[in-house]
Amino acid sequence: MENMTLEQVTLADLDALRAISIETFTDTFGSYNTPEDLAVYLETSYDPAKLKEEIQTEDSYFYFVKDATSGEVLAYLKLNLNDAQTEAFEEASLEIERIYVRPAFKRRGIGQFLMTHAIETAKSMGLTHIWLGVWEHNENAQKFYAKNGFQRRGEHVFMVGDDRQVDYILMKDISA
């Protein structure tokens, strides 16, 4: 997709970040969860105070993809380094915690644009690996990550309300 800008999210963007988080998570996972579990997850994970803390966390970085003409937010990316990562690995690594593309803008190359940015960021920092968690039933995302050279390294539990779900841990060696 052409005509996009990438901008780091600030506290002034908190409401927009919360809105796109709820929209994209609900679109992708809403039909696979009970309304009660989904509501609990959205309320706790995207609580304004929690998002504010995440934005202010050292070594966590949020980026919006915006339409360069209209300024409309199309997607966002969250990256974590060092102690901000949700898992610890021996490798010098960067975590992609979220690539969230709004439903109306999927399949336009935005996910690849964000993936490229994440990989370039990790390489510029001298890191050797990039990793992420992906839900075991999110086959479209798994195909996208496999196309980008990620391989399964393990798994962990991801809670949506009271529902224990499995995320696969995928990793890519970027040292070459």
Score class of each variant (00 low, 15 high):
V73H: 09
Y63M: 00
T121Y: 15
M115Q: 06
E90L: 06
E120P: 10
A12S: 14
T34E: 02
H129Y: 07
Q165P: 02
D37H: 13
F150L: 14
K78P: 10
E36I: 10
E54M: 11
H137I: 02
D15L: 13
E97V: 08
A39N: 14
Y168M: 06
K50P: 00
G71A: 10
D167I: 03
T86A: 00
E90C: 06
P103I: 09
E54R: 13
I55D: 09
N138E: 05
M115P: 00
R108M: 14
E155H: 15
D67N: 15
M4S: 00
T121N: 01
L170G: 02
I20C: 10
A12L: 15
K172H: 04
E72P: 00
L38S: 04
A146Q: 14
L6N: 01
R107P: 02
W135F: 04
R102I: 02
T128N: 13
E36D: 12
D167H: 02
Q112Y: 04
E7M: 07
L11H: 01
L17I: 04
N148R: 06
L77M: 11
E87P: 00
D13V: 07
R153M: 12
V40Y: 08
I130T: 11
D13N: 13
F150V: 06
L81F: 15
H156K: 14
D13R: 05
G109P: 01
N140S: 14
G111N: 03
V101R: 07
D15N: 15
D27N: 14
R98Y: 04
Y145C: 03
E7L: 09
D59K: 11
D173K: 09
S45V: 13
F105V: 01
N82S: 12
H156N: 13
M1R: 05
Y168S: 00
E72Q: 13
L17D: 00
G154E: 10
I110P: 02
Q85W: 07
P103H: 04
V157M: 05
N3L: 08
V166F: 02
L81C: 10
F113H: 12
T44E: 14
T24C: 12
A49H: 09
P103E: 12
T57C: 08
D163P: 07
T44I: 11
W131H: 03
D83K: 06
E58K: 15
T34F: 01
H137S: 05
Q165R: 04
V73S: 06
I22Q: 08
Y76N: 14
N80R: 05
M1S: 11
R152I: 11
L132N: 02
S21P: 08
L94E: 08
A176I: 11
L77E: 11
Y168G: 01
S124L: 07
D27V: 06
D167A: 06
E95Y: 03
F64S: 10
I174C: 05
E7S: 11
K66F: 12
A176T: 12
E72T: 09
G109K: 03
I174K: 06
G111S: 08
D27H: 14
N138P: 00
T57D: 13
T69E: 15
F62G: 06
G154Q: 02
L51E: 07
M115I: 04
L11Y: 08
T86Q: 02
S175Q: 08
Y63L: 05
D59S: 09
